[in-house]
Amino acid sequence: MIIFANGELVPAEKAKVSAIDHGFLYGIGLFETMRVYNNRIFLWSEHYKRLMAGLDALRISATWTEQELLDSINRTLVANRLTDAYVRLSITGGQEGVGLVGVEYANPSLFVYVKPVAPVAEPPKGKQLVSVSIPRQTAEGAFRFKSHNYLNNALAKLEVGPDPKVEGLFLTQDGYVCEGIVSNVFWVRNGKLYTPSVATGLLNGITRQHVLTLAEELNLPWEEGLFLLSSLTAAEEAFLTNSVQEIIPVNQVDGVPLAQDYGPITKALRLAYRRSVALYK
Rank of each mutant, 00 (worst) to 15 (best):
5 A>L: 08
7 G>A: 08
8 E>H: 11
15 A>E: 08
17 V>W: 05
18 S>T: 02
22 H>K: 02
23 G>A: 05
30 L>H: 13
34 M>K: 04
38 N>R: 12
38 N>H: 11
38 N>A: 14
40 R>A: 02
41 I>W: 01
49 K>W: 09
50 R>F: 07
51 L>E: 02
52 M>N: 03
53 A>N: 13
55 L>C: 09
60 I>A: 04
61 S>F: 11
63 T>R: 09
67 Q>K: 15
69 L>S: 05
74 N>K: 15
76 T>H: 02
80 N>V: 12
83 T>R: 08
84 D>H: 09
85 A>H: 02
87 V>I: 13
87 V>W: 03
92 T>I: 02
96 E>M: 11
97 G>D: 07
98 V>W: 14
98 V>R: 13
100 L>R: 08
100 L>C: 07
102 G>K: 03
102 G>S: 08
105 Y>V: 04
107 N>H: 15
111 F>C: 12
112 V>W: 03
113 Y>K: 06
114 V>R: 00
119 P>H: 04
120 V>E: 06
120 V>T: 14
122 E>R: 06
126 G>K: 12
129 L>G: 07
133 S>R: 14
137 Q>A: 15
137 Q>N: 15
145 F>H: 15
145 F>K: 00
150 Y>N: 02
156 A>Y: 08
160 V>T: 14
162 P>E: 14
166 V>R: 12
169 L>A: 04
169 L>F: 11
175 G>H: 04
185 V>D: 03
186 F>R: 04
186 F>T: 11
193 L>N: 01
196 P>H: 05
196 P>D: 06
197 S>G: 07
198 V>R: 08
198 V>G: 07
200 T>M: 01
201 G>A: 10
205 G>T: 12
207 T>R: 04
212 L>T: 10
214 L>M: 05
214 L>V: 11
214 L>P: 02
215 A>Y: 07
215 A>C: 06
219 N>E: 14
220 L>R: 00
222 W>D: 08
225 G>Y: 12
226 L>I: 11
232 L>Q: 00
233 T>P: 01
233 T>H: 02
237 E>K: 08
237 E>A: 12
238 A>F: 10
241 T>S: 09
241 T>M: 11
242 N>E: 13
252 Q>K: 09
253 V>F: 05
254 D>T: 14
255 G>L: 10
263 G>M: 08
265 I>E: 01
266 T>W: 00
266 T>Y: 03
267 K>T: 14
269 L>D: 08
281 K>H: 13
